[in-house]
Amino acid sequence: MPFKRKHLIGLEDLTPEEIKSLLDTAEAFKSISNRQVKKVPSLRGRTVVNLFFENSTRTRTSFELAAKRLSADVINFSVSTSSVSKGETLIDTARTIEALESDMVVVRHSCSGVPLLLSNVLRSSIINAGDGMHEHPTQGLLDMLTIRDKKKKIEGLKVVISGDIAHSRVARSNIYGLTKMGAKVTLVGPPTLLPKDIDRLDVKVENDLRHAVKDADVIYMLRIQLERQKRSLFPSIREYSMFFGLDESVLKLAKPDAMVMHPGPMNRGVEISPEVADCKQSVINDQVTNGIAARMAVLFLLAGGEANEIAAYGG
């Protein structure tokens, strides 16, 4: 199993083999998560630091649980950007954290490129937990894990990703991951939320959600941030919801067994109707559960773990 990396910055530069290796490892960890004793000793004695410059209870908790299930020591470090601006730079903060002898640093930041920057100045492994509008690789992995679970494959599936593609790191990581694994990805949104030349990424681009979901195996709805309206990116929530909201009438146009996904937190009634969010086709809660296994796999493989080791735990 080829996985020799020290850092996980994004899915853009991973090979399909590396992604498969991550997904297979995550799969193995999933079965451990189903046991009564959910802990394995793989990272005993290692220190994982969650360095979050942006609030995120969900992702931080998921990483924390993943690290703890691998028996690592976990430190949560939330830095409000205001305290960073008081003369202490990002690099100072990160070096301070590393002085605590961390082995792995999970970093989230509102600026794109921060994990890459840190990987150049710190000795620890860096795991990107979301940087600006760039990438959120573990989200991409947990989404692919969820799709593979339900559909038993990724290759050849039609995946529609709809919403604010321009500002979405989730969209980017999913585009890279899914296209590398052979899915056919269609992006949907108003032109104002589709970033420049995105079609150069081996994806189809459409403006009509109803048309796009035809024959879709997966419909992935992105959260729309309401403040985008102030920047004239769409005229009103009402209009956005009318054209880009997923309700039962739109869902009916997809394949009958199409999966509905969302990275959370949802704006119920805006990009997704409550009925669809809670329907049988929705796997939104599975995504959250799979997040732990996906992050365990990332921590484990970056720390140099071998897949057969998990088998030894009965995973």
């Binding site: 794109s112 490129g113 940087d131 760039h134 420049k196 030349d197 995105i198 150069r200």
Partner: peptide
């Protein structure tokens, strides 16, 4: 603002 800004997730 270009394909590169799209890939990097930086405002163009």
């Amino acid at each position: 603002e270009s394909f590169t800004s799209t890939v990097l997730g930086l405002r163009g």
